[in-house]
């Protein structure tokens, strides 16, 4: 795992297009509403601490003084009962799955290190996530039948990244065009860009 994010599109910011035809009113409203994280209403204090630690491990942002927040939006989604269209028969509904999964992660940390997940250093926390992903559980009872890998990948990580890359910082760092309506794109060819797109990335291998 790399230590530092390499940032091929340093300096590019989709928000530079805020007042251009790439943004329309409804998109501006959505992004504006996302700027201020909603208050916590779903998770308990304990669950919240584990969730914050999990988000920090899933999407570490060492280069940012003001990192993108993800946990408040997960909390808001669960509070609103926002679904995905699917409930696997062997999984509880999303809110219950999150509560059980976070408690189980905490239990894994206690079983291995005698400390909660939120109190682990990055390396130890990462090691637990990798172990959970490969089905290597230190406290299987804590999972109470919750499929650990599926919780981690499909419930937790998928939700976290959907929030991260919906934020302008997430879009900008990968050189994505971001909002595009009414103005779309003209130059569709290989290595071709419109003046309102991210400039060509800086790639170590090119």
């Amino acid at each position: 795992m790399t230590e530092r994010f390499s940032a091929p599109y340093r300096g590019y910011d989709v928000l530079d297009k805020w007042d251009t035809p790439s943004f329309n009113d409804q998109t501006r409203r959505v992004l504006r509403g996302r700027m201020d994280p909603p208050p916590r209403r779903f998770f308990s204090d304990t669950e919240w601490r584990v969730l914050l630690a999990l988000c920090a491990r899933a999407m570490p942002q060492p280069e940012r003084t003001d990192p993108v927040a993800m946990a408040p939006f997960i909390d808001a989604d669960l509070h609103a009962g926002r679904g995905t269209g699917t409930r696997r028969a062997d999984m509880p509904e999303p809110g219950a799955a999150w509560r059980r999964g976070l408690a189980a992660l905490d239990a894994e940390a206690v079983a291995r290190h005698g400390r909660g997940f939120a109190d682990l250093d990055a390396a130890a926390a990462n090691a637990i996530l990798r172990a959970v992903d490969s089905g290597d559980l230190a406290d299987p009872a804590a999972w109470d039948g919750l499929p650990a890998q599926r919780f981690l990948r499909e419930t937790a990580l998928k939700h976290i990244v959907s929030i991260y890359y919906s934020q302008p910082q997430g879009m900008s760092e990968i050189g994505y065009g971001g909002p595009a309506s009414p103005r779309g794109y003209v130059r569709l060819g290989t290595d071709r860009i419109d003046p309102w797109e991210a400039p060509h990335g800086q790639w170590p291998d090119r």
Partner: peptide
């Protein structure tokens, strides 16, 4: 991006800077 990131984590379990680096290749 959100769709592709979801595909990546579901298929590989990637997370952390490793995931951000992969997504930077979007």
């Amino acid at each position: 991006p959100g769709d592709f990131a979801g595909t990546l984590v579901t298929a590989t379990g990637a997370f952390g800077l490793d995931l951000r680096e992969r997504m930077a290749r979007y």
